[in-house]
């Protein structure tokens, strides 16, 4: 059994009286890739920030049985063009070791861009630079927020392959936030479908059959008449934190 790295237990969070996360529990394990999916406004980024420790939940526990070292790849990053900073220097902010920086640049395949100003990188190159910075400190948990945003399809496949092999070599847990399940399917051990609360979770091949998933994502890919009845997929999934009746957001 893989080692538990981080556990969130029954997290609640609201902003300006709007409930964003409702009784959300997540467990992240060493060597496992977990993908967090959900429509816009589902609370994915908030959940990721709670996992990162940047946002405090209103209630619920964040427990880590091991010393946590997080590598984070933000969704987008905007650096003012007046700040003269090279890609190499950008990495050095996280880890001053020269060999570590060079190695990370090598790993993500942009060692030819060492001296390039970070603002001049293309979308795909910037994603790689961010990934390089995320792995610099030898993390045991990688959190990737929409890691392939703004990257073309070929580049997306390459990035996913890279993330996959990194998860293996670093032997770390990975949490990936995405709004598109199709590309990440094969590379994911666990999928959590979020819409304020956890609609369903489990292995990707199960998730895609789940009525709650289809209700949110399936309209374009499957013709399906949804009868919202949690007892149906409860049996099929054996999902842990999912309780019938806590699914108030979509009916």
């Amino acid at each position: 059994m893989a080692r538990l790295i981080l556990q969130l237990d029954s997290i609640y969070k609201s902003f300006n009286k709007k409930q964003v996360l409702n009784d959300v529990s997540v467990s992240l394990y060493q060597g496992q890739i977990t993908t967090l999916i959900g429509p816009n406004g589902a609370g994915k980024s908030t959940l990721a920030k709670i996992i990162l420790g940047l946002v405090k939940p209103d209630s619920g526990a964040r427990i880590s049985p091991v010393p946590l070292k997080i590598g984070y790849m933000p969704q987008k990053i905007k650096i003012d063009p007046t700040l003269p900073i090279s890609t190499y220097r950008f990495l050095q902010l996280a880890n001053t070791s020269q060999s570590a920086c060079n190695e990370a640049l090598e790993t993500v395949g942009i060692s030819h861009l060492t001296a390039t100003p970070i603002q001049n990188l293309s979308g795909g190159e910037l994603q790689r630079a961010l990934l390089a910075r995320a792995i610099l400190r030898q993390p045991n948990l990688l959190v990737l927020d929409e890691p392939v945003q703004g990257v073309d399809v070929n580049g997306q496949n390459e990035l996913y392959k890279m993330i996959n092999s990194l998860a293996k070599t670093l032997d770390c847990g990975v949490l990936m936030v995405s709004h598109d399940l199709h590309l990440v399917m094969s590379a994911t051990d666990q999928v959590i479908c979020l819409n304020g609360h956890i609609c369903c979770h489990g292995r990707p091949e199960h998730i895609t059959q789940d009525p709650a998933f289809l209700n949110i994502f399936g309209q374009t890919t499957a013709i399906y008449t949804h009868r919202h009845d949690h007892s149906l997929h409860e049996e099929r999934l054996n999902a842990g934190p999912h309780q019938p009746g806590n699914c108030r957001n979509h009916d």
């Binding site: 984070y72 933000p74 990053i77 902010l93």
Partner: peptide, 9 residues
Amino acid sequence: VNPELAAIE
């Protein structure tokens, strides 16, 4: 450069 990355690090 980025306050979130700095905070996490």
